[in-house]
Write a protein that binds this DNA or RNA. Sequence first.
DNA 1: ATATACAGCTAAACCGATTCAGGTGAATAT
DNA 2: ATATTCACCTGAATCGGTTTAGCTGTATAT
Lengths: 332, 332
Amino acid sequence: MTIDDIARLASVSKATVSAVLNDKPGVARLTRDRVAAIIDRFNYQPSHVARSLSVRSTKSIGLVIKEIDNPYYTRIMRGVFDACSRRGYTVFLGSSELTFVQEEKSIQAMVNQQVDGLILTPLQGGNRDITYLATLIARKFPLVLIGEVKNLQTGVVTILNADAAYEAVSYLIQQGRRDIAYFAGPATSMHNDERYEGYRRALAEHELAISPRYVREAGSYFEGGRKEGLELFGGPGEKPTAVFCYNDLVAIGLINALQELKIRVPEDVAVIGFDNIDFCRYANVPLTTIENPAAAMGEAAADLLIGQIEQGDRFVPERITLNARLIKRSST
Amino acid sequence: MTIDDIARLASVSKATVSAVLNDKPGVARLTRDRVAAIIDRFNYQPSHVARSLSVRSTKSIGLVIKEIDNPYYTRIMRGVFDACSRRGYTVFLGSSELTFVQEEKSIQAMVNQQVDGLILTPLQGGNRDITYLATLIARKFPLVLIGEVKNLQTGVVTILNADAAYEAVSYLIQQGRRDIAYFAGPATSMHNDERYEGYRRALAEHELAISPRYVREAGSYFEGGRKEGLELFGGPGEKPTAVFCYNDLVAIGLINALQELKIRVPEDVAVIGFDNIDFCRYANVPLTTIENPAAAMGEAAADLLIGQIEQGDRFVPERITLNARLIKRSST
DNA sequence: ATATACAGCTAAACCGATTCAGGTGAATAT
DNA sequence: ATATTCACCTGAATCGGTTTAGCTGTATAT
């Protein structure tokens, strides 16, 4: 079934059928009804591909995330997906698998599929090569980043990591904790820099010194948190009375280590995570953490992107900042 | 940049350029090199959309899962994604959000986008309407299901749920447990039926009776497991010494309830889950469970589907069954 | 009565690729 | 010298839509 068939059956031109399909004016009531009747009698669906070729838009966007099966990115996905389906866009899935090569490949695959725009949770780090993304932006290709990349003029959606970290650490101080450690994320992560900054600011504001032994790179997984926990709390030397962690997995790993060492949470040591993954609720010590509104970020990114796509030219790169709030549970 | 531009620049016809692009024979070495040089000098990428229209294939598939941010489906996604990118297909994301209406909508959106085929983790239940899927199949639309749907002749990828459950329950019996409960999944789930069947068989084989009080519908989430756990173990009456759970979340909910009731795991009660989500490893009582090879199923489904797409006609609906093995940890 | 406006419709160009039935000329066969 | 073969290349049709300029014929204005 093509538009020609419908035109023939209705004895009109395909231009008229097209007008009916797209609710364009200039078709008499009677004709419109007759054509519409035939269209749904034969259950005709216009070819999306042909339409795309003609109007130069595929009504689809690409989403390239860091890891497909990471609950945090998964929540971003859900937000993007929801916003897109609401606005009639479909989404292509891509993943950078944590490597720059793969990231660029995925982006290229999407661009090649001629998506109308792209949402990216960019990899970060000193050795980040900006050129490819910059080219894309120079070509006016609609692009929205979730998370910052320096020197790139596009739409960006973020949370105020530093402020959230500040709030969390202040809360610990307010509870009487004075020796507070930070279990840091990967050194290449800008999120980590920002969270550290909040930590630093909170301590500085209360005139508490930062002990170098208390700032440890634990990465972003369970194992890192556990390992650093065993080392710091199992080894010799002073022990902190609270730990602010880069993310929830690290916090859970740490708690696991603490329990193994028979150190009580929160009595002996308070722990705060970041992200509020589902797991926090299920854990036997429900984790105090910072709600990272991943789904909302996904939605915001999609809305921003689609706005960008549909505005075309005169569009100014926007920046959306969402709030991350502290969720108090029993680990503090 | 279109194929015409390249043709003009190389002073050949677009047919020749097309032949070069697609590595077709019948182009002289010299010409081929000249054209190729121009193609990559201008960094020309042929329009995927135009190509799709011409060859009637978009080199993309649709993946419709039940829930985007459910770790189990997320692992399926990863498998599908990996297999597809390996074979040069891109994947559209869709979600049924656990409702039949939304499932059909998502599928239609994909079909409308003219994907070459579809992978679906179908909703199940007595009131499942088969007609739409059946129509698709009748139209020879390539479709692979992850999980069974009755009366549908397509590719299917599954695990032997009953056998896996049988193995798990047998293991409990072998450890000396005799009063074994089953915390069941949603009544509409075929997986649940099969797992119950395995449970039943294991008990029957050892001439152990099934106590109706011990078979309880806990659904598929943490809350259900916790609630049924509190009821069964907190209330009056006999208590089982082991529980086989529909899935890991239910098992974790149950363990949470048991800990609240000061019942020791595994000393007083052994618990087995199903799926082996990441969480099992992180829990303070590492959960014995059944490894559900979700990623492998995703890969198998994608391979099956792509095979089906590329074979075209003479294709026989295949069925792939993967093994699920018991992973013994400290909850038993 | 003539000019003007307008609603309703269509023919044909266009989007950017693929494909196939020939055409051309050089090399080989008879 | 003519016929045959073959490698290489091209023109034009095709995929299935959208869009625009222009053509009707009827209604209104002058």
